[in-house]
Protein backbone atom coordinates (compact mmCIF):
# COMPACT_ATOMS: atom_id res chain seq x y z
CA UNK A 1 0.00 0.00 0.00
CA UNK A 2 1.16 3.55 -0.70
CA UNK A 3 0.43 6.62 1.39
CA UNK A 4 0.99 10.35 1.37
CA UNK A 5 1.81 11.53 4.88
CA UNK A 6 1.38 15.11 6.05
CA UNK A 7 3.33 15.23 9.27
CA UNK A 8 3.65 18.10 11.75
CA UNK A 9 7.30 19.12 12.13
CA UNK A 10 8.44 21.37 14.91
CA UNK A 11 12.12 21.68 15.93
CA UNK A 12 11.40 22.66 19.54
CA UNK A 13 8.81 24.21 21.83
CA UNK A 14 9.46 27.75 20.61
CA UNK A 15 9.41 26.99 16.88
CA UNK A 16 6.25 27.75 14.97
CA UNK A 17 5.91 24.36 13.31
CA UNK A 18 4.49 23.36 9.95
CA UNK A 19 3.34 20.37 7.93
CA UNK A 20 5.78 18.46 5.73
CA UNK A 21 4.68 15.93 3.15
CA UNK A 22 6.34 12.56 2.63
CA UNK A 23 5.42 9.56 0.53
CA UNK A 24 5.82 5.95 1.63
CA UNK A 25 5.28 2.94 -0.60
CA UNK A 26 5.02 -0.83 -0.43
CA UNK A 27 3.69 -0.80 3.11
CA UNK A 28 2.21 -4.13 4.12
CA UNK A 29 -1.43 -3.96 5.24
CA UNK A 30 -0.35 -5.84 8.37
CA UNK A 31 2.13 -3.13 9.21
CA UNK A 32 1.27 -1.12 12.32
CA UNK A 33 1.08 2.66 12.10
CA UNK A 34 4.26 3.16 14.11
CA UNK A 35 6.09 0.54 12.08
CA UNK A 36 5.15 2.55 9.02
CA UNK A 37 6.65 5.64 10.65
CA UNK A 38 9.79 3.60 11.40
CA UNK A 39 10.01 2.75 7.70
CA UNK A 40 9.60 6.43 6.86
CA UNK A 41 12.33 7.39 9.29
CA UNK A 42 14.68 4.77 7.84
CA UNK A 43 14.11 6.40 4.47
CA UNK A 44 14.62 9.91 5.79
CA UNK A 45 17.90 8.99 7.49
CA UNK A 46 19.36 6.83 4.72
CA UNK A 47 18.52 9.21 1.92
CA UNK A 48 19.43 12.29 3.97
CA UNK A 49 16.03 13.80 3.22
CA UNK A 50 15.25 15.23 6.63
CA UNK A 51 15.59 14.65 10.33
CA UNK A 52 13.65 11.56 11.35
CA UNK A 53 10.17 12.28 12.73
CA UNK A 54 10.09 12.25 16.54
CA UNK A 55 7.18 10.45 18.13
CA UNK A 56 6.57 8.86 21.53
CA UNK A 57 6.28 5.12 21.86
CA UNK A 58 7.28 2.37 24.27
CA UNK A 59 5.49 -0.93 24.75
CA UNK A 60 3.93 -0.93 21.27
CA UNK A 61 1.13 -3.09 22.62
CA UNK A 62 -1.43 -0.63 23.93
CA UNK A 63 -0.72 -0.61 27.65
CA UNK A 64 1.95 1.97 28.50
CA UNK A 65 0.21 5.18 27.42
CA UNK A 66 3.26 6.68 25.68
CA UNK A 67 2.14 6.71 22.05
CA UNK A 68 -0.34 9.31 20.96
CA UNK A 69 -0.91 10.76 17.49
CA UNK A 70 -3.85 12.71 16.15
CA UNK A 71 -4.52 10.92 12.87
CA UNK A 72 -6.97 12.32 10.31
CA UNK A 73 -9.02 14.05 12.97
CA UNK A 74 -9.06 11.33 15.61
CA UNK A 75 -6.71 10.70 18.53
CA UNK A 76 -5.18 7.25 18.03
CA UNK A 77 -6.69 7.02 14.54
CA UNK A 78 -9.82 5.60 13.04
CA UNK A 79 -10.83 2.78 15.34
CA UNK A 80 -12.36 2.45 18.81
CA UNK A 81 -10.62 1.25 21.94
CA UNK A 82 -7.07 1.27 20.54
CA UNK A 83 -3.88 3.21 20.99
CA UNK A 84 -1.82 4.48 18.05
CA UNK A 85 0.53 1.50 18.24
CA UNK A 86 -2.44 -0.84 17.81
CA UNK A 87 -3.60 0.87 14.62
CA UNK A 88 -2.80 -1.10 11.49
CA UNK A 89 -2.46 0.11 7.94
CA UNK A 90 -5.29 -2.17 6.76
CA UNK A 91 -7.61 0.40 8.38
CA UNK A 92 -6.62 2.75 5.56
CA UNK A 93 -7.12 2.61 1.81
CA UNK A 94 -4.29 2.36 -0.68
CA UNK A 95 -3.31 5.87 -1.76
CA UNK A 96 -4.80 7.60 1.30
CA UNK A 97 -3.57 10.97 2.52
CA UNK A 98 -2.88 10.83 6.21
CA UNK A 99 -2.60 13.96 8.38
CA UNK A 100 -0.56 13.32 11.51
CA UNK A 101 -0.53 15.88 14.32
CA UNK A 102 0.57 15.86 17.95
CA UNK A 103 -1.88 16.17 20.86
CA UNK A 104 -2.73 19.87 20.80
CA UNK A 105 -3.39 21.55 24.14
CA UNK A 106 -1.97 24.49 26.07
CA UNK A 107 -1.27 22.06 28.92
CA UNK A 108 0.70 19.73 26.60
CA UNK A 109 3.43 21.88 25.02
CA UNK A 110 5.14 20.36 22.00
CA UNK A 111 8.72 19.21 22.66
CA UNK A 112 9.65 18.17 19.14
CA UNK A 113 7.58 17.19 16.10
CA UNK A 114 4.89 14.86 17.44
CA UNK A 115 6.24 14.55 20.99
CA UNK A 116 4.39 16.54 23.66
CA UNK A 117 5.13 17.14 27.32
CA UNK A 118 2.50 15.34 29.38
CA UNK A 119 4.08 15.95 32.76
CA UNK A 120 0.96 17.96 33.65
CA UNK A 121 -0.74 14.61 34.15
CA UNK A 122 1.98 13.54 36.58
CA UNK A 123 1.50 16.79 38.47
CA UNK A 124 -2.21 16.12 38.84
CA UNK A 125 -1.52 12.65 40.22
CA UNK A 126 1.08 14.08 42.57
CA UNK A 127 -1.54 16.49 43.86
CA UNK A 128 -3.77 13.71 45.13
CA UNK A 129 -4.04 10.63 42.96
CA UNK A 130 -2.82 8.26 45.66
CA UNK A 131 -3.60 6.95 49.12
CA UNK A 132 -1.38 7.90 52.04
CA UNK A 133 -0.34 4.64 53.58
CA UNK A 134 2.79 3.53 55.44
CA UNK A 135 4.43 1.20 52.99
CA UNK A 136 5.34 -2.28 53.94
CA UNK A 137 4.51 -5.57 52.37
CA UNK A 138 1.37 -5.64 50.24
CA UNK A 139 -1.45 -7.00 52.42
CA UNK A 140 -3.32 -10.11 51.43
CA UNK A 141 -5.92 -9.36 48.77
CA UNK A 142 -9.00 -10.26 50.80
CA UNK A 143 -7.98 -8.65 54.09
CA UNK A 144 -10.21 -5.65 53.32
CA UNK A 145 -13.50 -6.92 51.87
CA UNK A 146 -14.65 -5.09 48.76
CA UNK A 147 -17.87 -6.06 46.97
CA UNK A 148 -17.23 -7.29 43.47
CA UNK A 149 -19.36 -4.65 41.78
CA UNK A 150 -17.23 -1.89 43.34
CA UNK A 151 -14.03 -3.74 42.60
CA UNK A 152 -15.15 -4.08 38.97
CA UNK A 153 -16.01 -0.40 38.60
CA UNK A 154 -12.78 0.60 40.33
CA UNK A 155 -10.80 -1.70 38.04
CA UNK A 156 -12.50 -0.24 34.95
CA UNK A 157 -11.55 3.24 36.12
CA UNK A 158 -8.03 2.16 37.06
CA UNK A 159 -7.38 1.01 33.50
CA UNK A 160 -6.49 4.55 32.54
CA UNK A 161 -3.02 4.56 30.98
CA UNK A 162 -2.61 8.33 31.07
CA UNK A 163 -2.11 8.67 27.33
CA UNK A 164 -3.95 11.99 27.08
CA UNK A 165 -6.24 11.08 24.20
CA UNK A 166 -9.14 12.48 26.22
CA UNK A 167 -7.47 15.89 26.37
CA UNK A 168 -6.58 15.70 22.70
CA UNK A 169 -10.15 14.78 21.69
CA UNK A 170 -11.88 17.32 23.91
CA UNK A 171 -12.81 20.59 22.24
CA UNK A 172 -11.89 22.32 25.51
CA UNK A 173 -8.71 20.30 26.14
CA UNK A 174 -10.26 19.17 29.40
CA UNK A 175 -8.69 16.45 31.55
CA UNK A 176 -11.95 15.51 33.29
CA UNK A 177 -11.96 11.89 32.11
CA UNK A 178 -8.38 11.41 33.31
CA UNK A 179 -9.02 13.03 36.69
CA UNK A 180 -12.44 11.37 36.89
CA UNK A 181 -10.91 7.94 36.29
CA UNK A 182 -8.40 8.37 39.09
CA UNK A 183 -10.86 9.92 41.53
CA UNK A 184 -13.49 7.27 40.76
CA UNK A 185 -10.98 4.44 41.07
CA UNK A 186 -9.96 5.54 44.56
CA UNK A 187 -13.40 6.75 45.69
CA UNK A 188 -14.88 3.32 45.04
CA UNK A 189 -12.43 1.54 47.35
CA UNK A 190 -12.38 1.70 51.15
CA UNK A 191 -8.68 2.67 51.17
CA UNK A 192 -9.48 5.68 49.01
CA UNK A 193 -12.53 6.89 50.89
CA UNK A 194 -10.53 8.16 53.85
CA UNK A 195 -9.03 11.05 51.86
CA UNK A 196 -11.78 11.34 49.24
CA UNK A 197 -12.73 15.00 49.85
CA UNK A 198 -9.18 16.27 50.06
CA UNK A 199 -8.21 14.32 46.98
CA UNK A 200 -10.91 15.60 44.67
CA UNK A 201 -10.35 19.21 45.70
CA UNK A 202 -6.59 19.08 45.25
CA UNK A 203 -6.69 17.24 41.97
CA UNK A 204 -9.35 19.43 40.40
CA UNK A 205 -7.66 22.65 41.54
CA UNK A 206 -4.37 21.43 40.11
CA UNK A 207 -6.10 20.47 36.88
CA UNK A 208 -7.52 24.00 36.57
CA UNK A 209 -4.17 25.60 37.43
CA UNK A 210 -2.34 23.62 34.76
CA UNK A 211 -4.50 25.05 32.01
CA UNK A 212 -6.85 22.20 31.22
CA UNK A 213 -10.34 23.18 30.16
CA UNK A 214 -13.71 22.53 31.73
CA UNK A 215 -16.08 19.77 30.75
CA UNK A 216 -18.98 20.67 28.48
CA UNK A 217 -20.32 17.14 28.26
CA UNK A 218 -19.59 16.37 24.62
CA UNK A 219 -18.09 12.97 25.59
CA UNK A 220 -15.48 13.04 22.86
CA UNK A 221 -13.11 11.78 25.56
CA UNK A 222 -15.16 8.64 26.17
CA UNK A 223 -15.40 8.01 22.43
CA UNK A 224 -11.63 8.13 21.98
CA UNK A 225 -10.34 6.56 25.21
CA UNK A 226 -8.24 3.51 24.25
CA UNK A 227 -9.30 1.80 27.47
CA UNK A 228 -12.96 2.74 26.91
CA UNK A 229 -13.33 4.50 30.23
CA UNK A 230 -16.91 5.71 30.56
CA UNK A 231 -18.44 9.14 31.17
CA UNK A 232 -19.98 7.86 34.40
CA UNK A 233 -16.56 8.35 35.94
CA UNK A 234 -16.86 12.05 35.21
CA UNK A 235 -20.30 12.01 36.83
CA UNK A 236 -18.73 10.39 39.88
CA UNK A 237 -16.07 13.08 39.90
CA UNK A 238 -18.79 15.74 39.82
CA UNK A 239 -20.57 14.02 42.72
CA UNK A 240 -17.37 13.86 44.72
CA UNK A 241 -16.80 17.55 44.00
CA UNK A 242 -20.29 18.49 45.19
CA UNK A 243 -19.74 16.38 48.31
CA UNK A 244 -16.53 18.19 49.13
CA UNK A 245 -18.17 21.58 48.62
CA UNK A 246 -20.32 20.77 51.63
CA UNK A 247 -17.76 18.91 53.66
CA UNK A 248 -15.74 21.57 55.43
CA UNK A 249 -12.39 23.24 55.14
CA UNK A 250 -9.63 21.67 53.09
CA UNK A 251 -6.98 24.13 52.06
CA UNK A 252 -5.74 23.05 48.61
CA UNK A 253 -2.10 23.58 49.43
CA UNK A 254 -1.99 21.46 52.55
Amino acid sequence: MNFTLHIWRQENAKAKGRFETYKVSDISSDCSFLEMLDILNEQLINDHIAHPVCFDNDCREGICGMCGLYINGRPHGNDDGITTCQLHMRKFNDGDEIWIEPWRAKAFPVICDLVVDRSAFDKIIQAGGYISVTTGGVPDANTIPVAKRFADMAMDAAECIGCGACVAACKNASAMLFVGAKVAHLALLPQGQVEANERVKKMVCRMDELGFGSCTNTYACEAECPKQIKRQNIARLNREWIKQLFSGNHKPNE
Partner: peptide
Protein backbone atom coordinates in the same frame (compact mmCIF):
# COMPACT_ATOMS: atom_id res chain seq x y z
CA UNK B 1 -6.75 26.02 25.96
CA UNK B 2 -5.91 25.02 22.42
CA UNK B 3 -3.89 27.98 21.06
CA UNK B 4 -2.76 26.04 17.99
CA UNK B 5 -5.86 24.54 16.38
CA UNK B 6 -5.85 21.13 14.72
CA UNK B 7 -5.53 21.13 10.96
CA UNK B 8 -7.96 18.28 10.55
CA UNK B 9 -11.54 18.74 11.76
CA UNK B 10 -12.45 16.38 14.57
CA UNK B 11 -14.07 13.14 13.43
CA UNK B 12 -14.90 11.97 16.93
CA UNK B 13 -18.48 11.02 17.77
CA UNK B 14 -19.87 13.42 20.33
CA UNK B 15 -23.15 13.94 22.18
Amino acid sequence: NRPVRYHQPSRTKTA
